[in-house]
Simulated scan of single mutants.
Amino acid sequence: MQPSAGPALPHTRARSVHWITTAAVIAAVIGSAALVQPAGASTGRPAADAKAAEPAPAAVAPPDPDAAHFPLECAGAPVDVVDRASADLDGDGRPETVAVARCHSETGTPPSGLYVLSADPAAGADPRIVETLVDPKEQRSFKGLRIDGRTVRATVLGYSTDDVPRCCPDQQRDYSWEWRSGTYYEIPGPLANGV
Rank of each mutant, 00 (worst) to 15 (best):
T132E: 02
T132G: 00
L133Y: 01
L133T: 04
V134R: 13
D135T: 03
D135M: 04
D135V: 03
P136N: 03
K137W: 05
K137L: 11
E138M: 14
E138A: 15
Q139L: 15
Q139H: 14
Q139S: 14
R140H: 06
R140W: 03
S141D: 00
F142R: 06
K143E: 13
G144M: 04
I147M: 08
I147C: 05
D148I: 10
G149H: 05
R150I: 03
R150Y: 08
R150W: 07
T151F: 05
V152P: 09
V152G: 09
V152Q: 07
V152F: 01
T155V: 13
V156C: 02
V156Q: 05
L157I: 04
G158R: 04
G158S: 09
Y159S: 00
S160H: 12
T161C: 07
D162P: 07
D163G: 08
P165V: 03
P165W: 01
P165C: 01
P165F: 00
R166T: 14
R166V: 13
C167M: 08
C167S: 10
C168Q: 08
P169F: 07
Q171M: 13
Q171R: 15
Q172D: 09
R173A: 09
R173Y: 07
R173K: 11
R173T: 09
R173D: 05
D174C: 08
D174T: 14
D174F: 09
W177M: 05
W177Y: 12
W179G: 03
W179E: 08
W179I: 06
R180Q: 15
R180C: 11
S181T: 13
S181Q: 15
S181P: 07
S181N: 15
G182R: 08
Y184K: 03
E186S: 11
E186L: 08
E186C: 05
